[in-house]
Simulated scan of single mutants.
Amino acid sequence: MGKNHGNGNNSGNGNNSSSGSELPQTGETQLTISLIVGIAILASVAGATVYNKKK
């Protein structure tokens, strides 16, 4: 059938480290995006309010 060249699951590439410093916390990305979108909405509402009061 041929030779096994080590392309299986146990290739030993060293990507199984468990250091938490490289991985983002759960929900961190969604929290950041939500925060930016919320600030943008608040700024838009405040800007529209100021713009309408100047008219």
Rank of each mutant, 00 (worst) to 15 (best):
S18D: 02
A40I: 10
I39Q: 05
S21F: 09
A40E: 08
V45Y: 04
G38R: 01
T32K: 09
G27V: 00
G8Y: 05
V45W: 00
Q25M: 08
G6F: 13
G27F: 06
N15L: 07
L23R: 13
I39H: 02
G6E: 07
L42Y: 02
G14I: 02
N15V: 00
V45A: 05
S44R: 01
I33Q: 11
Q30L: 13
S34E: 00
G12F: 03
V45F: 02
V50E: 04
A43V: 14
L35M: 11
L35T: 11
N7V: 01
I39C: 07
S34I: 15
N16R: 12
I41E: 10
E22R: 07
Y51S: 09
I33H: 07
G12W: 01
L35Y: 03
L42V: 09
V50I: 14
S44F: 11
A40Q: 06
G20E: 00
Y51N: 02
I41R: 00
A43Q: 06
S11F: 07
S19M: 03
T49V: 13
S21G: 06
S17T: 05
S17W: 09
P24L: 06
S17H: 11
Q25A: 12
E28Q: 15
Q25H: 08
I36W: 06
N16K: 13
G20A: 15
G27C: 07
